[in-house]
Design a protein around this nucleic acid. Structure first.
Length: 308
DNA sequence: AAGACGAAAGTGGTTGA
DNA sequence: TCAACAACTTTCGTCTT
């Protein structure tokens, strides 16, 4: 998971940038997040009282976001010397503490529930632990900023998971999240966009190649076909065939062509089903690929071979 | 008969005035 | 906020293997 990367595995560029706060290594050439350590997350103050903002402290201990209180409690301290305070500020102090208590218990109750839901979905989709952690972190932030209000908890959980998947380049489609979480696809999409925008989480447009391994294994295609389809995708990207299109459709078409080239033909319907798109979309992408990349020859070659 | 192809109309989301 | 727009889907008739 945490090999030391010197070159970007995506574009081979060496212009890597280490964002220490976010624990990421980002390729400046292609925008790929090469490594995501998920350890040190920039600011994470836990101070609810904005009046005493000057006393912000960092939380030093390592945190895990899949436990609802992250192993840490938050309280407005009791130990301050209250006798020195005047009555007014004393009252204020108690008021604050009361509110803080209410807010934090409400948040923690919510988190406890949400995180068990999150774990359920995550294990259903067989997501890696790191993604689960990331999703939990996103959800926690969302709750703390009150972004769940007016939305169902489940949809925010699903949205957080979707975002985490994207960041870790193990994308699941919205359909899969929808099926696993029992939410509407568009609802998840909405909350996903909302949450990522509000939290300022930047998400790279998902790369069609990320879908290849999963689709390929679902179709029982060989490793050769897989790497061929990735090669096709790279060429397609250079010909600007990928921008603006749905990544799953492109991935599906590339896989379809690659299978054709290696004589492992699958029907358009089969490929369409695992990719969650329609045959028509595959056809359109497929046609574009043939037009721009001159793949006809390669397909004809294998056709001849099959005849022999 | 099944799969591939393509046209036409409909849907949901994005964008720009 | 609304209308134009592009991507994608659904449906269906036709062609190919």
């Amino acid at each position: 998971m945490s090999d030391f990367v010197k070159k970007c595995p995506e574009c081979g560029g060496i212009n890597l940038f280490w964002n220490k706060e976010k624990g990421e290594i980002i390729c400046r050439d292609c925008g790929l997040v090469v490594e995501d350590k998920m350890v040190d997350f920039g600011q994470e103050w836990r101070e609810f009282d904005s009046d005493s903002g000057d006393s912000r402290r960092r939380v030093g201990a390592p945190m895990t976001y899949t436990q609802y209180d992250q192993g840490l409690g938050t309280e407005v301290g009791m130990k301050a010397d209250l006798s020195r305070l005047e009555n007014k500020s004393r009252n204020k102090f108690f008021r604050l503490r009361k509110w803080q208590y209410r807010i934090s218990t409400a948040i923690e109750r919510n988190l406890k529930l949400a995180l068990s839901e999150l774990k359920r979905i995550s294990s259903y989709l067989k997501l890696p632990k790191s993604v689960e952690e990331e999703a939990a972190r996103i959800y926690t932030l969302a709750v703390q900023r009150g972004l769940v209000r007016g939305r169902s908890m489940e949809s925010v959980v699903a949205g957080a998971l979707y975002a985490a998947c994207r960041r870790h380049e193990v994308p699941r489609t919205l359909d899969e999240l929808a099926e696993a979480s029992g939410n509407e696809k568009k609802e998840i999409g909405r909350t996903y966009r909302f949450v990522t925008r509000e939290l300022g989480i930047s998400i790279m447009p998902s790369n069609p190649a990320d879908y290849i391994p999963r689709f390929a294994s679902a179709l029982k295609l060989s490793a050769e076909t897989q790497s061929k389809s990735i090669e096709i995708l790279e060429r397609a990207q250079k010909s600007e065939l990928t921008s603006g299109r749905g990544p799953t459709g492109i991935a599906a078409a590339a896989l379809y062509v690659a299978a054709l080239i290696y004589g492992e033909k699958r029907t358009q319907r089969e490929v369409a089903d695992v990719a969650g798109v329609t045959e028509v979309t595959i056809r359109n992408r497929y046609k574009e690929l043939l037009d721009k990349l001159q793949l006809e020859k390669e397909i004809k070659k294998t056709k001849k071979k099959v005849k022999e």
